[in-house]
Design a protein around this nucleic acid. Structure first.
Lengths: 321, 321
DNA sequence: CGGCAAATGAAAGACGTCAATCATTTTCTT
DNA sequence: AAGAAAATGATTGACGTCTTTCATTTGCCG
């Protein structure tokens, strides 16, 4: 009943434990026919190495580095907190997470690194250093896996929400981007365009994820075009959006934005915004660590697409105690 | 640098390994002052028992039993599949899941059991047998933890969606329950009532999660009251709803229902329904197993509230390959 | 067939914890 | 203070794998 051990494999293959071990761990110096017999025995018995025992023996601890942009965008500080929480929670699993600003030096000696929404320069440096890299939030070429949401689908979702909210009426939705040069933001916009059609989608404005700029540019746009019936805020800086909606009172546009932060939560509760699409940073981070562990164990896990949560005023999760 | 071991703790406390072990594992026969010194040393060193080593030593394998109602409601068969998948995925973690119909005999000897949407009779039998029980999908008194969605919040969410969809117009929403005696269903209805108000919410019909009955009763209700602008299907049996919507063509009501199944997925894609609120069976099951493992390890984890996913046509996850 | 390299086997000591046994010390009782 | 009970210490062999060392066997070459 018990799972087969490497001893069982060796016995079944008719070789010694040493030889089975040499095959399993690729140490070389084994005749071809032995290799095949061991492989066959592994297959037959359905042997799976007990990773916990292996790690115990190797005194292996997983050393991960996480690069998260500095500053306190509500969102990235949630990511940062999630890494700290997870590091704490996984201490018993021999996992160490070294959390760093994306600005600092070359990667320390670690088993796998994760980059959250970082630029291409960083990943190049890491890859050059032979460290496998996982992309979080923002995909990037060269990454072994991407963990994050499908931004195109997110944009389509936002579009659908606007369509539902506009049922019957003609929609005029203003997209507010962080930057048109960010892949994520472009994808979201493209997704929305698929659903809304050109006549309903106004040209986007760019606020560089900056609340002040958001307040200025968006306020200006709303004054210039009183016929705007919807807003899709694609990036960050929504702190600047809230007071504008408060000023507009009862006939503000329908607002969809991204990431649940203290500000967007308050906005929902105060009926100043309508929908928040959240990519669940804690779950993303947990997922990223699982993937990194798998990579460190020599597996080749695929990318993980997080299904974003959609929050209204009514289904906000309780604040953690 | 390396994590402290129990040997380190013993040394720091000035006692032998045996004594430290007796304290840690509550074996008794230890003087109060030794207990305190060991506790203090554990605290000071930040000692955390290495669970992998412990499990290795105990040859511990977690034996779980999962009771899932028989039959192939799309939803419960997804739960069932999730258990099988997880059992497979966690074989390396020494976790065995014994999946059973809720009808069969008393609990086998196991570390923890999980009941998915079962009646009270079952849980009583299990609890009498000293097996800790976790409730999945449907909460029940006596369970050590509940893993599932907040049904009240789900109902409110559905209500909000209807309000968004009805903006301006007067809503007349027909709730379709499985059974008014199910706690989950009552909660969902109550949640919706909080948002919609009595004048917009019609009296519910009951279809007992049965597609045929759904087709008959709902069809009848729709013919009787052509002014229905929305449907909230609270339970199962939605297979019977789809063809009705197809028949109504362009001016069908706005439809919100629960659980992503092959049928509801097809309904979304064919524009026959609008929103699916899904409780993510796979995630729930994974979560339940984590909780059960924690319970088996002697921890006392809390309940977990799953945030339901909200699906439109546009953000459906790809079908697993 | 001698000699050399390659292949194999045997063994042992980690890793950190569990669990059990037995010997010894301390503490309490009367 | 003697004897019983309680507490402690010392030790050992698992658990399954890793890693290294050393001895032995096998195969191949000229």
């Amino acid at each position: 009943m018990r799972n087969p051990t490497l001893h069982d494999v060796a016995r079944a293959a008719g070789v010694s434990y040493s030889t089975a071990d040499r095959v399993l761990n690729g140490r070389g110096g084994v005749a071809m026919k032995s290799i095949q017999r061991v492989r066959q025995a592994i297959e037959d018995l359905g042997y799976r190495r007990d990773i916990t025992a292996a790690n115990l023996s190797r005194r292996r601890s997983y050393r991960f580095a996480a690069y998260v942009p500095p500053g306190d965008h509500g969102f990235f500080s949630a990511i940062r907190r999630a890494f700290l929480d997870q590091a704490e929670a996984r201490a018993g699993q021999r996992i160490t997470v070294d959390l760093r600003d994306e600005l600092d030096g070359p990667p320390a000696d670690c088993d796998c690194a994760v980059l959250a929404g970082a630029g291409q320069e960083r990943i190049d440096a890491l890859i050059a250093g032979d460290v496998p890299v996982v992309a979080l939030v923002t995909d990037m070429p060269g990454a072994r896996a991407y963990i994050g949401i499908d931004n195109l689908a997110a944009g389509r979702t936002a579009g659908r929400l606007h369509r539902i909210a506009h049922r019957g009426r003609h929609a005029r939705v203003l997209p507010v981007m962080g930057s048109a040069s960010l892949r994520d933001h472009r994808d979201r916009l493209a997704g929305m365009a698929e659903i809304l059609g050109a006549d309903s989608l106004l040209p986007p404005i760019e606020v560089r994820d900056n609340p002040d700029r958001m307040r200025d540019l968006l306020g200006q746009a709303l004054r210039a075009d009183p016929g705007i019936t919807g807003i899709y805020s694609i990036g960050a800086g929504n702190r600047g959006l809230i007071p504008l909606m408060r000023d507009m009172g009862g006939n503000r546009p329908f607002v969809v934005l991204h990431e649940l932060t203290p500000h967007s939560r308050a906005g929902l509760l105060d009926d100043l915004i309508d929908v928040v699409i959240d990519q669940k940073p804690a779950e993303e981070v947990a997922c990223a660590l699982d993937v990194m562990k798998a990579i460190a164990d020599g597996e080749t896990p695929g990318s993980v697409t997080i299904t974003p949560a959609i929050f209204f005023k009514e289904n906000l999760p309780g604040v953690p105690a």
